[in-house]
């Protein structure tokens, strides 16, 4: 299996043969290639609705990676969330999303003026 590493902007071209990774220039690349050949994982970034007119949507991301095949489920959840508190960057928006133990966290602080 040949793939391009998406861990960092370098974009190393990786090869996985019988569980052995080549072409990587760092440890993270190796881990990425192994996951990608078994169960690909992704960090997902999106927004959720808020009640604040100055910031109708709040940017969020998964605090860690979730399985790629769970992205759809996460997006459905994000569609239903309504933020009513003045959250700060890093605050948890939803816990254990899409059947994982990964939280959804705010990547910006709610801004009101």
């Amino acid at each position: 299996m040949e793939l391009v590493c998406i861990v960092c902007p370098k974009g190393c071209r990786l090869k996985v043969e019988n569980g052995v990774v080549s072409g990587n220039t760092c440890k993270k690349g190796e881990a990425f290639a192994l996951a990608e050949s078994t169960r690909p994982m992704r960090t997902v970034c999106t927004t959720v609705a808020t009640v604040f007119p100055s910031m109708p949507v709040l940017p969020v991301r998964t605090a860690g990676e979730i399985p790629k095949d769970k992205i759809g489920e996460l997006m459905k959840l994000a569609d239903t969330i309504l933020v009513k508190e003045k959250l700060r960057r890093g605050d948890t928006v939803a816990k254990g999303v899409a059947g994982t133990d990964v939280n959804l966290v705010a990547t910006a602080s709610i801004y009101t003026d």
């Binding site: 902007p9 999106t46 927004t47 940017p59 991301r61 960057r89 990547t107 910006a108």
Partner: peptide
């Protein structure tokens, strides 16, 4: 830029743009 990938060099983390 709500997507992540910012700050790998500066902070050693993959941050979203607003972060």
């Amino acid at each position: 830029c709500v997507h992540d990938g910012f700050g790998l060099i500066r902070f050693g983390e993959k941050l979203a743009g607003p972060e």
